[in-house]
């Protein structure tokens, strides 16, 4: 039974690894949701609500139809939520996931547990992604409700119960989840590759911010442009500033985003396996 080096354990199956990742995610989720970072992410998620709260209180009812307002909301989700607040939230939650622990000299605790490092990272990524996506999905759904509020109960009821309202809301949530997962993986990889991930994150941020002004070839380098392929409402109005471009097809967007996610996961797995914890160099 034993060769003197302890009992032999069977090679872990994929199922076991998934169960381990899920267990780590469950443990981490509580930790992430109660952290100071979660409070900052929540603050960022609350900022997009401000204009809609103010519009609900001070806005002029009947200035536009519900349909027009929802198209405007879709623009808002793309311009403010996806490319700004969610991006900053993901940077905050994921770029420091490893780097901060290296700075605090606590990462070795995570690596001491008898689970493969990649599985630990997957669990941590899943926990942070679930937390960020939950916070931002809630705020986006709330903002959607506030955007509909000035149009009165009958119009809103008709839109949501008998029209495409619920599907649109689900569409927005799906985009948020997809964006969190992708940016989360990208920032996690950046946090492992770069000594100062925030600097690189700011470069990504500036690129995303400038997307409307970029030609199509450069737009394709941004993640948010591929995410617009999944937005449930698309504007027929031409952009006021920047270079207009048709949004990508959902299929192409799914392939590209899936590829980005896979590459980021591979980079994380490769880097985390080779990571040597010396905590030196100040």
């Amino acid at each position: 039974m034993s060769d003197g080096r302890g009992p032999l354990l069977p090679a872990p199956s994929l199922r076991l690894r998934l169960a381990q990742a899920a267990a780590i995610a469950r443990l981490e989720l509580r930790h992430v949701l109660l952290s100071r970072r979660a409070a900052s992410v929540s603050l960022l998620a609350a900022l997009p609500l401000v204009p809609w709260v103010l519009a609900a209180i001070y806005g002029t009812p009947g200035r536009a139809s519900l349909g027009e307002d929802l198209v405007g909301f879709s623009h808002f989700v793309d311009g403010a939520v996806l490319r700004l607040f969610l991006l900053l939230g993901c940077m905050l939650a994921f770029a420091g996931l490893v780097r901060r622990e290296i700075e605090n000299r606590t990462l070795h605790y995570a690596f001491l547990i008898p689970v493969r490092r990649e599985v630990t990272m997957a669990g941590r990524w899943a926990a942070s992604a679930a937390a960020v996506a939950t916070i931002f999905s809630s705020s986006t759904v709330l903002a959607l409700a506030l955007a509909c509020l000035p149009h009165g109960r009958p119009a809103v009821t008709a839109h949501f119960l008998h029209g495409p309202g619920l599907a649109q809301a689900a569409g927005f949530v799906a985009v948020i989840v997809l964006a969190t997962a992708t940016w989360g993986a990208v920032f996690l990889a950046l946090g492992l590759l770069a000594r100062r991930p925030v600097g690189w994150g700011l470069l990504v941020f500036v690129l995303e911010l400038l997307r409307p002004m970029l030609p199509l070839a450069l737009k394709r380098l941004t993640i948010s442009w591929w995410l617009t392929g999944f937005l449930p409402l698309r504007s027929q109005v031409k952009a006021v500033v920047g270079i207009p471009a048709p949004p990508p097809s959902p299929l192409a967007a799914a392939i590209v985003l899936g590829a980005v996610l896979a590459v980021a996961a591979l980079v994380v797995a490769w880097r985390v396996r080779r990571l040597e914890l010396a905590y030196s160099g100040g």
Partner: peptide, 28 residues
């Protein structure tokens, strides 16, 4: 240093976006 820079940058960008959105959407 790096997180300070990130927060500093965010202070100039995030409230500005919320303020501009509020000015456009709510007319304030």
């Amino acid at each position: 240093k790096s997180w300070g820079r990130g927060l500093f940058f965010a202070l100039f960008v995030a409230p500005a976006a919320a303020g501009r959105a509020a000015a456009t959407i709510a007319g304030l």
